[in-house]
């Protein structure tokens, strides 16, 4: 299993982990959120390879986040491993249930139906006053199997946790992409009726992809909730989903690493743009997205493939 690609990935994660104590605190917290969101983007990459673009992935993101927050608030359990597992499982369950409906749709209708579902959750959250309505509520910081550091040490420990979760998820998804079910994404995108004629149920295939993407989004939301120590309904609003789709397009579906690199680049560009032109940062973002779509259809990840030396090795990624 130790292919050069896996080795490079492991090396990259090791470097990121070792570098953290020497990086400024703002960069670590930015990277924490960026990598947590990278998990959601990873899920979108799986769907995007099959030609599906959900405009409501925030549904699963918010489900994961609110599950963690609610467990912390009502049961007093703050262990990150328990709450993260619960968040991912809850999002997976929601994805499994909504998947029966969503897996029947394609293209724009898939996008809009998933959007409608996330907006229903948004409406419920906004109207639920016990959960703080539009303000949301505070999430207490997590503990690590009884280990409860505070301040900078906690932030660092949490960053390492996010990194570890991302590394595991990246490895799992890379394995999935090499499996038959994973490789069937592109054929489904090109012509799903032919896939049906091969004797494969496209609906079940897509249902599986939806659940995987849902679990990843739930995990991302759970990590994000613990990182910023706050949840609010805007996590399920459609502009949040739009942001994830944005990063997916920016990064491209070429590789697993692109999801995390894209998410990090996006967070960096956004915070720099907000800093430099507070009034016009959306123009900067929109321009970046527009230029990527029109000039780089494969996303930023495709730039790597254009390097002549690497091209031979990776072939048609």
């Amino acid at each position: 299993m130790m292919t050069p690609r896996t080795l490079a990935g492991a090396l990259a994660f090791a470097v990121l982990a070792v570098a953290a104590p020497f990086a400024p605190a703002w960069l670590v917290s930015l990277a924490t959120v960026a990598f947590a969101n990278g998990l959601v983007v990873l899920g979108l990459v799986i769907l995007w390879r099959a030609g599906l673009v959900p405009f409501g992935q925030a549904l699963f993101y918010a489900t994961g986040a609110y599950t963690v927050a609610l467990i912390g608030r009502y049961t007093g359990v703050h262990d990150v491993f328990v709450t993260l597992a619960a968040g991912a499982a809850a999002a997976g369950l929601v994805a499994f249930l909504t998947g029966f409906l969503l897996a029947r749709y394609r293209d724009i209708f898939f996008a809009m139906l998933s959007l409608a579902m996330s907006m229903i959750l948004y409406g419920v959250l906004v109207k639920t006053e016990t959960l703080g309505s539009t303000d949301g509520f505070h999430v207490e910081s997590g503990t690590f199997l009884g280990f409860a550091p505070a301040g900078a040490l906690h932030d660092l420990a949490f960053y390492w946790l996010v990194l570890a979760v991302c590394a595991l998820a990246a490895l799992q998804v890379a394995i999935y992409f090499d499996s038959v079910a994973g490789m069937l994404g592109a054929p489904v995108r090109d012509n799903e009726i032919r896939v049906e004629f091969l004797g494969i149920s496209v609906n079940r295939l897509i249902h599986l992809k939806l659940v995987i993407a849902g679990v990843l989004a739930g995990l991302g939301g759970a990590l994000a909730a613990l990182a910023v120590e706050h949840v609010d309904p805007s996590m399920s609003y459609w502009t949040t989903s739009g942001g994830f789709v944005f990063v997916t397009i920016l990064a491209g579906a070429g590789s697993v690493a692109a999801a995390f690199v894209g998410s990090l680049v996006f967070e960096l560009v956004r915070s720099i743009a907000v800093d430099l032109f507070p009034g016009e940062w959306q123009i900067a973002l929109g321009t970046a997205l527009l230029l990527t779509i029109l000039l780089l259809p494969g996303g930023l990840g495709s730039l790597v493939g254009r390097l002549p030396r690497l091209k031979r090795k990776t072939g048609a990624a």
Partner: peptide, 20 residues
């Protein structure tokens, strides 16, 4: 281009016009 990609083009323009 793909229908969904064109949606994203209009989304990008929408973001820009908000600031305009």
């Amino acid at each position: 281009r793909d229908e969904v990609v064109v949606v994203l083009v209009t989304y990008a323009v929408f973001l820009m016009l908000e600031d305009v």
